[in-house]
Every structure is written in structure tokens, then in C-alpha cells.
Design a protein around this nucleic acid. Structure first.
Lengths: 147, 147
DNA sequence: CTGTGTGCAAACTCTTTGCATAAGT
DNA sequence: ACTTATGCAAAGAGTTTGCACACAG
């Protein structure tokens, strides 16, 4: 069973329900709506409250608690990937492949880094294996007077 | 002025006061005590409440709020480096040199990765420069039945 | 003495949880 | 029908802040 096409490829609305079912998730109104917002525009990086606000604007009604529940659930089954940025905010990323992130300190925006390879660079200690590698490259506006 | 020797080398108690002064910080009782805990045992990774508890045990009385203030201040001037791990906890690291971290999911412990090099691997977008690179390699106990 | 740091408690942000109601299969 | 999800509001963790008092230079 190949479950690898969960990122990079925008998924049409009609494919959302099968997508959830394939991951063993019940297709509720909220999950369908949130999944649609997440997966029909290509890769996205959202926090729970951003997604909740967006959902509200799109007339998809889901409480903030539900948005958290759904995002955590999606992360558990592997539909999305989550990581934490400064301030302790949790960001959910629809790109589940191994990659790094730019974090823009001025705007708070997140961007995938394409081609950032680091797998196999780290040798885990005896008895442990690598669960995940989080790489966040924090960027600030270039403002120094130097050439 | 060379301010680079803030890590790896345990600093004797007597050197703590000059250290603070060199960074333009007033040498208060709490700062001296906390700095002593931080810098006299080699590299350390602490959260605010761990350090507060430890301070209490060592009869260095500093409220949790003060511990936060002091750690944030130390981070601002470059005496320590801070990063965020899952759960939104902020970890303060006395090793201010560029390096990566192992995060043990079972124990919550943090460990420096020696020799993890990645500088210059990321080309920042136009107009931006790299402020900091946070690399956290999350480890889990190896427990799969496969060979 | 004067300015700055500290302590306390309250405020704040982000996230999770308990329980009654609603919806999915 | 039976199970599982949702919504709300309240609780929870981690961190910051405002203000009176204390201390360092």
C-alpha cells in the first residue's frame, strides 16, 4: 500500500474523503473541511488558530479545540508533520517528506527549504534510532552596514 | 575584544563576577548564583524551572520569574543560547557555539552532537541572513523486531 | 543616593480535557 | 443503534509582566 502522495501534489476536493478513509479516519464534516483547506493548495504551514480562522472564513465551522484535535490526529497518522517554533507555537506542515525550514523572524512565516539534505549525517547513540530531525533556519532582515 | 570562551570550559566561581561585568551586566546575588550553576560544570542544558529548583537546592534563592528574566537576559547578551523543544519548553544551553542537539524522547534529555556541521549549507533568500540554525535530532528507543 | 533587579501574584498564550450533544457508518 | 467526533468552557503548562521593595554601584 502506497501512502506516500500526501504532499506536494494538490489534492482535489473529491479525493479528500478517500484520503481520510485510507488512513482509517472517519470522514466527518470538520475533518473533510479542514483537510480540504490543508491539501488542495499544495504545501502549507499552518498553526491551529490560523487554520481555525481560515476555516471560519470558508464557512467550515470547527471549534478551535476540534482544529487542534484534527491536526494532532492528522499528525499521528502521518497526514501532516508538526514541529515547534519559537514562542512554543506548533506548526503543522502538509509536506511530510524530510526537509528543512526557513523561519522568517520578522514575519513569522515558514518556508520549506528545497534540497536541504541531512539524513544519515547523524549517528544515533546505541539503542536509539532517529525518530525525526527538525531543522529550522532562522532568518533576519539583512541590515548590517558592511559590504 | 574576545568574548568567545563562554562554553566548554568550566569557569571557576571567582571568574563569574568578571564574566558578568564583561557582558555589561550588574553582578546581583541571583545572577551570580545562577551563572555559577550554569558555568562551573561544563556544558549544560537547562529549562528555567529545572534551574530554579536546582538553585533552591543550592540555597541560591531566586524566584522562577527572576530565573526566566536572568536566562533571557543571558541569552540576549550571548552568554547562553536558547531553543525550543516539543511541548514548547525553552532550553538554555551554555554552549554558544554552532552545534546540533539530540533530544531523547523517552527521558526528555538533551545532548550536544559533536561534529554536526551544517553552516553554509543553507543559502538564505535575498535580503535575509541566517540568524541561527536550530537542529534537533529526536531519538526514540530502538525497539523494532526487524534485523 | 539613584537606578536597576527581584519577588510575588496575576495575566497571558497556546494547548488539552471533560462532558453533554451531534453526527457518522 | 452504536460509536466516535464535536463544541464549549474550564483547566493546564510555560512564560511574561506590573508594581512595591531591596540591593548594587
Amino acid at each position: 500500500m502506497n501512502l506516500e502522495q500526501t504532499s506536494m501534489t494538490p489534492i482535489s476536493t473529491l479525493q479528500i474523503r478517500p484520503l481520510l478513509e485510507r488512513y482509517g479516519l472517519r470522514a466527518t464534516r470538520q475533518r473533510l473541511g479542514l483537510a480540504k483547506l490543508l491539501f488542495s493548495k499544495g504545501d502549507r504551514h499552518v498553526t491551529a488558530d490560523v487554520l481555525a480562522t481560515e476555516a471560519h472564513g470558508a464557512r467550515i465551522f470547527a471549534s478551535l479545540a476540534t482544529v487542534y484535535n484534527v491536526l494532532n490526529l492528522f499528525a499521528e497518522v502521518g497526514l501532516v508533520r508538526s514541529f515547534t517554533v519559537e514562542g512554543g507555537k506548533t506548526v503543522f506542515d502538509t509536506n511530510t517528506t524530510e526537509h528543512c525550514h526557513f523561519y522568517f523572524e520578522d514575519s513569522g512565516e515558514i518556508q520549506d527549504i528545497v534540497g536541504g539534505k541531512f539524513a544519515g549525517q547523524f549517528a544515533p547513540p546505541e539503542g536509539y534510532e532517529i525518530a525525526k530531525v527538525d531543522v529550522v533556519v532562522r532568518l533576519q532582515r539583512k541590515q548590517d552596514a558592511r559590504a
